[in-house]
């Protein structure tokens, strides 16, 4: 009975998670407040963890479950906490006057998603993967991450953009190869955690010497 229930539930849970995954990146692209951006990021990571767990249980692969645990600790706890610490320390809460305004960004994001879904249904790409139906979502999230990085001025938003992009790559891994070998996945997670701490330190330094975390002010070096 329970087995049947799980079999019934798994696909719908998977597709719900996928939708929320994509929705969160749209919300990040359309949000102005740094704190809510970080919250959306944490929630997006949680969806990824759920997807990884589903994959782990359905293939009964203990490595995938371990990877999901590490991802949960890192992306849902350490990274958001570190980013929140930086926000409180710098006292910058809002993305004022971004290069592309949030509504326009969301519009561009929608066009991007439509394009990606249209393109990936061509036979050339269909060959690569359709194991979980995550492939086009993953590609969209990578592109949205890039768009966030180039359309915002605050150093902190750029970090979030980078990590959204990384989430996309993680989703791509889960979809195409059900996760990398454990050693590699450990290394990548370690990189991410060290990365957020180090980039956080740099944001604080930027704040200290420029008195703002606006990266468009970093324009002295030329030629």
């Amino acid at each position: 009975m329970t087995n049947l229930l799980i079999k019934e539930l798994t696909p719908s849970l998977l597709s719900y998670s996928t939708v929320i995954l994509l929705l969160m990146s749209i919300l990040i692209a359309g949000s102005n407040r740094l704190q809510s951006i970080v919250k959306f990021y944490a929630f997006q990571s949680l969806c990824l963890v759920v997807i990884t767990l589903i994959v782990g249980f359905s293939t009964s692969n203990s490595e995938t479950i371990r990877i999901a645990t590490i991802t949960f600790i890192g992306k849902c706890l350490i990274i958001p906490l570190a980013l929140n610490f930086v926000i409180n320390k710098t006292q910058v809460h809002k993305e004022v006057d971004p290069i592309i305004s949030p509504p326009t960004t969301v519009l561009i994001v929608c066009i991007l998603i439509a394009l990606v879904y249209g393109l990936t249904s061509t036979p050339n790409f269909a060959k690569i993967a359709y194991s979980l139906g995550l492939f086009d979502t993953a590609i969209s999230i990578i592109l949205i991450g890039l768009l966030i990085m180039i359309s915002r001025r605050k150093a902190l938003t750029q970090i979030v953009g980078l990590y959204v992009m990384e989430n996309g790559i993680f989703a791509l891994t889960v979809d195409t190869v059900f996760g990398m070998p454990f050693v590699v996945e450990m290394g990548i997670s370690l990189d991410l955690f060290i990365g957020v701490l180090i980039m956080g330190i740099w944001v604080l330094r930027i704040k200290q010497s420029f008195d703002s975390i606006d990266v468009s002010k970093l324009s002295k070096l030329k030629g």
Binding site: A155, W202, R205, S209, F210, K220
Partner: peptide
């Protein structure tokens, strides 16, 4: 830790 070196490191 000058302004220019912080810019370079961030980029």
């Amino acid at each position: 830790n000058k302004q220019t070196s912080i810019e370079a490191a961030w980029k």
